[in-house]
Structure formats: C-alpha cells, structure tokens
C-alpha cells in the first residue's frame, strides 16, 4: 500500500517560558492510501500537535514528514500553502469559515482554488451540503448558523477539493448526537470511496469508524493497530444484542 503520509522520528519541542516541553517525541507513522486512522490519547499527549505538523500548520523540531512520496517538512510556508490547497483538507474543533461569504461559497472556494471548474465545484458542494443536511442553509452567511451547522460546513469545505488527505482535530467536539450522526455517515461514505483520513478524536463513536487506532501517551505512540471485529458481531435484522454490561 503506497503511503500518503509517512513520518520518521518526528519530534516537536515547544519552548514554554524558557522550559522546553516535548509535545511529540519520536513518532514513526505510516498511513496508506485509503486508510482511516483515529488518533487517541489524553489531553497533552501530543495528538493535536501531530496532526498540525502533518498539515504544515506547525513546524517540526526534527524528523521527517513525507506526503504522497514527497518530503514536505522542509517546505517554506508558501509552498505548504500551495500543497494544502491541492492535497490536504482540514477540520478543526473551532472552524474558520469566511464570514462575508455564503455557506455555498465557503464550500466551493477550495475546489475552485485547486482548479475545479465552476460546474464541478457547484456539484461537489451540492453533494456535500446535501449529505450533511445543509442544503437549505446554502445561501446563509456562516454567522447565522448554529455551532453544529458551522462544523458540518467546515467538514464540507475540507472535502471540497477531494484532498489526498483529510486531517481532522476533534471534528465532533461541538455536535449533538444527531449532527454527529450526519458527520459519521459522511465520513463513512467518503472513506468507502477511498478518502484517506487521519482524525484526532476522543469520541469513540467517531473513532470506531476508523480502520486503525493510534494511541499516544506523552508524545509517543504506545499502540498502533486495527480495530478488531468483535466476536459477538451482531447479525443483520431484528433481535440483535446490545450488551449493557453489568
């Protein structure tokens, strides 16, 4: 499986008031095309720092990052900006939508910037907004939307240019359970179509969609493996078992 992302001994040290703090401590990560990886771990374990570095939003202290076979940790900020435009989609817990553009334009913009025709961009936007139950909000400015709606727009925007890699940092942090379900469905759908996803989340519903879970502790990977099929996998149809363990 060709690697979309590969890191070699990746390290990030912050200087916090003169004291060096190691946030990411020698991470070797390999994510193949089409894989969905959930990154879990306690707060302060380096999860967010890791995905920020993978998207070029945070500079690494040492080590290597390879994206689609190209070394990227040595790129300048402007080169990173170009690379992100074409290859990376981002969703954060606190979405940054463009305030003076409609929801529809917010979602179409990244597709247009990465070279889609206006027709392609519009079709992609219509598909994404529909999947997230936002069609009726297309002409509204982001400020008129509730937090959960804005987060779904941010996800639609991140997927608009069909990026090689979708990076997400707690994308369901602000969502109620119905909105979370829409996001889960769309993520499952794009993953099935081959979207590579790396997602930081503490939400087990979201993480359970992943093929693999990477667990961080004190900046290091302490576990990296597939989520197994449980022995008591429910059969299709009525009469399935929920075990409320006692």
């Amino acid at each position: 499986m060709s690697a979309v992302i590969r890191t070699v001994n990746l390290v990030k040290i912050y200087q916090s008031g003169g004291v060096p703090v190691t946030a990411v401590d020698g991470v070797d990560l390999h994510v193949g095309a089409g894989e969905f990886v959930a990154v879990m771990g306690p707060s302060g374990s380096g999860k967010s720092t890791l995905v920020h570095m993978l998207g070029g939003l945070d500079a690494r202290t040492s080590g290597e990052i390879w994206l689609d076979g190209k070394r990227v940790d040595t790129l300048s900020e402007s080169a990173w900006a170009l690379l992100r435009r074409d290859k990376v989609g981002f969703v954060f817990q606190f979405f940054n939508l463009v305030a003076n553009m409609t929801v529809a334009d917010n979602v179409e913009l990244p597709a247009l910037l990465s070279g889609a025709t206006p027709k392609q961009a519009r079709e992609r936007r219509e598909y994404l907004l529909d999947a997230l139950g936002l069609t009726e909000r297309a002409e509204a400015p982001p400020a008129q939307l509730a937090g959960g709606e804005q987060q779904r727009v941010a996800l639609a925007r991140a997927l608009a240019n069909e990026p090689s890699l979708l990076l997400a940092d707690e994308p369901t942090g602000n969502l109620d359970s119905r909105n979370t379900r829409d996001v889960l469905r769309l993520l499952g759908e794009v993953h099935k179509k081959g979207q590579t996803i790396i997602m930081v989340t503490h939400d087990a519903r979201v993480a359970s969609l992943a093929d693999r879970v990477v667990s961080l502790l004190d900046g290091q990977i302490v576990d990296d493996g597939v989520i197994p099929v449980t022995r008591r996998r429910p059969k299709a149809g009525a009469g399935d078992v929920v075990e409320l363990r006692s």
């Binding site: 519903r205 359970s208 992943a210 879970v213 667990s215 576990d223 197994p228 399935d240």
Partner: peptide, 25 residues
Amino acid sequence: RMALINRQRRHYLGVMRDLNDLIER
C-alpha cells in the same frame, strides 16, 4: 499492563462499531 490496556481499547472500539451498525439498522 500497557498491552492489556491497548487490547481492551481496541476491543471497546470494536464494540462501539457494532453499536454504530446497530443504530443504523
């Protein structure tokens, strides 16, 4: 201990995946 915790975490995520499937159906 680390191995026990890691295995258990993956198992719980597998259980959660089943629940996701169940709720969809």
